[in-house]
Structure formats: structure tokens, C-alpha cells
Amino acid sequence: MSNRIDVKKTYKLFINGVFPRTESGRTYEVKSAKGSFIANPCLASRKDLKDAVVAARAAHHGWNKATAYNKGQILYRLAEMLEGRRAQFVDEIIAVTGATKAKAEKEVSESVDRLVWYAGWSDKISSLSGALNPVAGPYYNFTIPESMGVVAAIAPETPSLLGLIDVIAPIIVSGNTLVVLASSKAPLSAMSFAEVIATSDVPAGVINILTGMKDEIAPWMASHMDIDGFDITGLATKKHAEIRASGAENLKRIFAFKSHDPARILAFMEAKTVWHPIGL
């Protein structure tokens, strides 16, 4: 029998490489599958979103300029760090979802593997999707995909860890920076994953994670003039039309995805075409 007092973790947000509380001071309750209290994560407000976008915008230039090799290394580093802490993630998944140990272990393993898979795409995506175009003139004409800028995302409710990683990895691997709203019912793995990010050489502001309610945050993500793309995979299908309409005002590119796929990377990239004169 131990006399130690429980040391419980305070679940905060992850913005610009640090862990602030929400500016609103609000929290909400996360309960286990059986209904018992687990934690009080932050209930992020639109102003937390605004701060996160400012951080993401500031981080974009540097992250976009990092070499594909370097970005791949950093994604692989995320996988290494996650692997080293798998026990904690397994426990959190079991506590919140009531999943069996085997099922939770499988989700964490798949998450690690998924990070490695996307890390591998880093230095291949532009060669595979770029092109040398035939043109009727004395020019070389290249098309190369480039990152879009700041992308927002709503992570799916389940699986809370694997779903989050499927949202994060394809968006950042191309050089975008990201503001993601974690699963509302199971945000613990997301905030623990923020600790993995903080120790993996991901520059501050490249990945920002909020916890809170989709219905409160998603409309602000859609209407924000400084967010270039929006992954609404985690948003209920009946909300899609409204969000797409609001994002159309600022020409935001909005997509939802069903599985992991290199198309997820390309969705948040833009094609740049360069004309280079021959013989100069």
C-alpha cells in the first residue's frame, strides 16, 4: 500500500510549441466508457484558434523551406518517440474507450507504422506527382507540387490516436503547418501526442492541437481568412455542406477522407508551373 498522492496530469492545449491553458479558462469533462470521471481537458475558444493560426502562419516559412529529407526524418522521429511511450498511449486508449488491451495495442502500433509510412512519402511525393510538360516552344516546363500554407483539421472521434495521426502526418509532410481539433470525447491521446511532438524536433507552431467542441470551432476554421485548407474528415457528414459554403467565401480548399492515401498529401498541395528557356 503506497502513501503517495496521485499526481494527475493537467491536459492543456498545444500552441506554438508550448502548452497554454485556453484563454477562455473553460474546461469540460472526459469520462470513461463506463461513465466515471477521467480528466478535465481545455474547452478551446475561437481565440485559441486565432492564436494557433498566428503561430502556424509564422512557422510555415521555415517548415516549408526545410528539405524533404529533413521533414521525413522529423516524421520518423515522431514515430520513434511514440514507440518509446506506447504503454502510456495504450493505457489512455483503454481508459477512455474501454477497448481491450489487444485492440489498444493494435491502434498504437498502427499509429507508429502510419507515421513511418508518411515519413517515407516526404522525398517522393514531388517526384511522383510532378511533371515535365510538353510545350510548343523552346522551354522546359515543369510542374511541381508545393505546400499550401496553413491547414486546419478536425480529427475523427475514433480511433482517437490513429485518426489524429492520419490527419496530421499527410498535412505536415509536404510543408504545411497545421491547427487540428482533437477528438472531443477522447482528447487524452491527442494531448499526450503533443508531448511526443514537443520532443521530436518539430519546430514550434508547425503542429498546434486544440481540444474542444467541433460545432463551436469548425465554423471559425471555415471562415478564417488566413487558413488555406481544411480537412473535415472528423466532422459529421450532415455538417459538410454548411462548412463548405462558409469556406467558399475565402476560397478555402476543403476535403474529407476515408483512408490513408498519398492523395491526402496532394489534396493540401498546390501545383506550381515553371517555364525555363532552353539554350540560356
Partner: peptide
């Protein structure tokens, strides 16, 4: 406008 603005403007 009611929307968060962008430095691009």
C-alpha cells in the same frame, strides 16, 4: 466582416 482576417490582405 465577422471573420478572422489574413495578413495577405
Amino acid at each position: 466582416t465577422g471573420y478572422y482576417a489574413s495578413p495577405a490582405y
